[in-house]
Computed example of a mutant assay.
Amino acid sequence: MTDDLLRAPAEVKYADELDWLESVDDGPKPFSWRLSPKMVRLFILGSERADGLEREIPQKWFGDRSFVERAIVTLASDRGLLLIGDPGTGKSWLAELLSAAICRNSTLVVQGTAGTTEDHIKYSWNVSMVIAKGQSRESMIASPIMTAMERGVIGRFEELTRSTSDVQDALISILSEKYVSIPELDDDNIVFAQPGFSIIATANSRDRGVNDLSSALKRRFNFVRIPVVTNRKSETEIVRFRTEELLRRHAIELDVPPSLLSILLQSFADLRAAAQSAASDDEKLESALSTAEQIGVLEDAILSSHFFGDRTLTAQRLASSLVGSLARRSPEDLAILNKYWHGVVEPRSQAEGGEWPAFLDGGRDTIATLS
């Protein structure tokens, strides 16, 4: 079934694994959870020899164990969970994995934007049915959040701070009272949340000031802050994990040399350090330089090599993808990258050799083309 989908949700992609974990899980489960909290953690972080399982469970989210445990405890307490952090820190992926493990449904999602309305988190109406038969529960269109309430499962709200304050305020009664009133109906006009219902929201810390959360809404969420991954080992594991998924999905047989992966990680580390020491925003790349963007650069280089190259990933191709992905503003970003290439990459290529000279040439050519 997963072969028929461009991107299968976690509960579909890992269905066999979840079925097996559920069959051997004898731990206590809150509400109507499909897995116990220990098994939810194990599904997300992977198994260890000390777990004593007959089957190895691979790690799917790479980050501090305490973040996952606090998120699980929050959901077990029926409080709302807010995952907050910089772009590309894996907030949405963690929310999807939590939902898949707890209730086997991660698709009840509201995407927060400036155009999100209260109807998107409560309900709307099927106009043709209302005209034909009047307003009733049958003519009502439940939102993903209301559907989660009725089923006693997890509802997700992506980019909460991107939605306006009146939309955010509509969540307050849902999180505190655990029901939604339908004043248009005389009977059957309240939808109560069933045990197991909760909301996992995500927020981009760079959106601070766009639509700040009210103090009332903040009190109804437990905050889990997800930091940018800076540990080289963890970052390598994340990039390798996502790259292997890409290669499987596209049925591509292509090796990613460890030397090129090291160059990619080092380049992002250098650019992050430069951004931290920059005196103004004009001296920083617009990119957040997240792990997700590293994966995007590598994905671009792999696909370019596969379709337009000789199916071999080269340092030149990697440099071209990096510059092309990060040069979003012209001329500001190009100037920053050009400075980095001359001030850091060129001396390193002379001192270390290896793939760095080819990386230097590939970046120079791309910068010249874009300038």
Rank of each mutant, 00 (worst) to 15 (best):
L5E: 08
L6F: 10
L6S: 13
L21M: 12
S32D: 15
K38Q: 11
M39K: 09
V40T: 07
R41L: 06
F43H: 05
I44V: 12
A50Q: 11
R55T: 12
I57G: 05
R65L: 05
F67E: 12
E69W: 00
R70M: 08
I72N: 02
I72C: 03
I72M: 02
V73G: 00
L75D: 09
S77F: 04
G80C: 11
L81C: 09
L81N: 09
D86K: 12
T89K: 00
G90D: 03
S92L: 01
S92P: 09
A95N: 04
E96K: 06
L98G: 08
S99A: 15
I102V: 15
I102W: 01
N105V: 10
N105F: 00
S106D: 12
S106C: 05
L108V: 10
V109C: 00
T116E: 01
T117K: 10
E118L: 12
Y123L: 08
W125Y: 07
N126M: 05
S128T: 14
M129E: 09
K133V: 11
G134S: 00
E138Y: 00
S139I: 02
P144S: 05
P144G: 05
P144F: 01
M146A: 15
M146D: 01
T147V: 14
T147F: 00
E150Q: 14
R151Y: 08
G152K: 02
V153M: 00
V153S: 06
V153P: 02
E158L: 13
R162G: 10
R162Y: 05
R162Q: 13
T164P: 02
T164K: 07
S165A: 14
Q168Y: 06
D169A: 14
D169K: 03
L171G: 03
S173G: 11
E177I: 06
E177Y: 01
K178H: 07
V180P: 09
P183F: 08
D186L: 09
D188W: 00
I190D: 08
A193W: 02
I199E: 07
A203N: 07
N204Y: 01
R208I: 13
L213A: 09
R220C: 13
V224I: 12
R225I: 13
P227I: 02
V228M: 14
V229C: 14
T230M: 11
V239T: 08
R248W: 05
L254M: 15
D255F: 07
P257V: 05
L260G: 04
L260N: 09
L264N: 06
L265Y: 10
D270P: 06
D270M: 11
L271S: 06
A279Y: 01
S280Q: 04
S280Y: 01
K284H: 05
L285Y: 04
L285N: 02
A288G: 09
Q294K: 03
I295M: 00
V297K: 00
A301I: 06
T312H: 00
T314G: 08
A315I: 08
L326A: 04
D333V: 02
I336D: 01
L337F: 07
K339N: 09
Y340R: 10
Y340M: 04
P347K: 04
R348Y: 11
Q350A: 14
A351I: 10
A351Q: 12
G354R: 03
I367G: 04
T369Q: 13
L370Q: 12
